[in-house]
Design a protein around this nucleic acid. Structure first.
Length: 488
RNA sequence: CGGGGCGUAGCGCAGCCCGGUAGCGCACCUGGUUUGGGACCAGGGGGUCCCAGGUUCAAAUCCUGGUGCCCCGACCA
């Protein structure tokens, strides 16, 4: 009726857009490529953010905030870095508006041109490393473990709600270390934190690995990644953690004195995840009825629907259940709207992905029971009133686990070992997903494969087993399989 | 940056070809009947038809120019 969602199999892209809009997560805005994150979508992001923030702090990081604007000259200090971002920067050139002399409206005041243009940050390495120069003198100042929650702007050609927007919210960790080993350990730790978050909270299984030189972050010596697989068989880079070597320390002249009074450049990492994760969450679990949310991130875990509408005896029971669940930290709402009928509400709450629905009708109360429905499988059971609290707790845990299992099973079924290029193309076009194949290690081959198939090397998995083989494209020697996929 | 589409009520759209009182569905308000998987009836409110200029007695509709957003691709988190 009112909220038709395009079928996933019919048009995956349209299905995704329908979910985002109809579940009330976000809308397009008046600004090209920028979205309005609506309260429900923002609530999901807040839950992600809060949990990640806890995990960052548990691993010793603190939050700070750096400017939105970056002097143009900063960006050019690290050569690879500027190459990577130059083409997608928003630039501030003036600082004042004025009424047009001809009365045609407001124009930029030509006299208010900035001496040096400001770049709206696409990422903050440069402004942060400029600042670190002042903060770091001695080994005693290290490690410096800082995270920032911020918005950044990348003027992308092609945008998609949550997955790629011109402005997005994210966190960026920027750490400084005394030794190479310590920085590498940090980058690995944060990759692990991201993987743990993705799997335990988002119920989204990820492959941990590292990027090929070609896919590396601009300015990094090594880029670690977590890669997830979406339901249409495309991969999503869900988070990255970079070992930056001494590149930024050298570019911004950040040195420290060690215990031996010897001066050296510090070692750096940076790592980030963004609102893109919301897109990943949607594309991992949702279905043709709408959003499906893992309980650990659902803004509302339980909704109670009075059947057919609120009534004193139903309200009493609902209140009791709410109190009991809330005392266990379970967010629950009672849908008291007396204008909408139960069927409408069921559909609406399913669209919003609320993990558990409790239906209370007079008929049920006569039998001292309520109906409990789970969003993931849409199964319903009757539970006696004294059992509701415990049942719901277990059910939420079960849903969380089931979503992960389901996604893992999908990924397993869509991960294929391939040993020749014909199969490689066949698999990509038929079922998609991850392809484990040998690669000769050259960028040339990587690019050629991309050109021919649109598949990229998502990563070299951390746990890739050493096995001799022949490159799926060039036939040259290879010592391990890498992970290919078409990606978002 | 190429290709396509769209701008008309809060949302989704028709009307435009062939100029003549701005319409439909949903949502909203009122009343009533309903209510265990997206209710129905009756009444009602709500519009710079993206902007500017032109043609015309008359423009949502025709002409010219502009602008915005979306979708699909190449580039990227």
């Amino acid at each position: 009726m009112a909220k038709e969602i395009t079928g996933m199999s019919e048009d995956y892209s349209q299905w995704y857009i329908d979910i985002v809009k109809k579940a009330g997560l976000a809308d397009n805005s008046a600004v090209r490529g920028c979205m309005v994150i609506k309260p429900y979508g923002f609530a999901i992001w807040e839950n992600m953010r809060d949990q990640l923030d806890r995990m960052f702090k548990e691993t010793g990081h603190v939050n700070a905030y750096f400017p939105l604007f970056i002097p143009k000259s900063f960006l050019s200090r690290e050569a690879a870095h500027v190459d990577g971002f130059a083409k997608e920067c928003a630039v501030v050139t003036h600082h004042r508006l004025m009424n047009a002399p001809d009365g045609s409206g407001i124009i930029v005041d030509p006299d208010a041109k900035l001496e040096e243009e400001l770049i709206v940050r696409p990422t903050s390495e440069t402004i942060i490393w400029h600042t670190y120069k002042d903060w770091i003198n001695s080994y005693r100042d290290l490690p410096l473990l800082i995270n920032q929650w911020a918005n950044v702007v990348r003027w992308e050609m092609r945008t998609r709600l949550f997955l790629r927007t011109a402005e997005f919210l994210w966190q960026e960790g920027h750490t400084a270390h005394a030794t190479r080993e310590e920085a590498i350990t940090e980058a690995r730790l944060m990759q692990k934190v991201y993987a743990q978050f993705a799997e335990e909270y988002m119920a989204m299984p990820v492959i941990q690995g590292y990027k090929t030189p070609n896919e590396r972050f601009a300015g990094a010596e090594d880029t670690l990644t977590i890669e997830a697989l979406m339901q249409d068989g495309k991969a999503l880079q869900a988070g990255t953690s970079h070992f930056l070597g001494q590149n930024f320390a050298k570019a911004f002249d950040v040195k420290f004195l060690d215990e031996q009074n010897k001066e050296s450049y510090v070692w750096a990492t940076s790592w980030g995840v963004s609102t893109r994760l919301v897109g990943g969450l949607i594309m991992t679990h949702s279905d043709d009825d709408g959003l499906v949310l893992p309980p650990k991130l659902a803004p509302t875990k339980v909704v109670i629907v009075p059947i057919p509408k609120p009534a004193p005896e139903i309200n009493d029971v609902a209140e009791k259940i709410m109190r009991a669940l809330r005392s266990k930290g379970i967010s629950v709402i009672y849908d008291t709207d007396d204008k909408k009928r139960p069927g409408f509400k069921f559909a609406e709450h399913e669209l919003k992905g609320i993990p558990v629905r409790i239906g209370i009708g007079k008929r049920d109360l006569e039998n001292n029971q309520v109906e409990i429905a789970r969003r993931d499988t849409k199964e319903k059971t009757m539970q006696t009133l004294d059992n509701v609290e415990q049942y719901v707790q277990e059910l939420l845990a079960d849903i969380q686990q089931n979503l992960f299992n389901r996604a893992l099973q999908y990924r397993t079924e869509h991960t294929t070992k391939v040993d020749n290029f014909a199969d490689f193309q066949d698999v990509l076009d038929s079922k998609g997903g991850f392809i484990e194949a040998h690669w000769d290690g050259t960028t040339e081959t990587e690019l050629k494969i991309k050109e021919l198939t649109k598949a990229t090397i998502r990563c070299i998995p951390n746990d890739a087993v050493e096995e001799p083989g022949k490159c799926v494209f060039s036939g040259k020697d290879s010592s391990r399989r890498v992970l290919f996929a078409r990606a978002y």
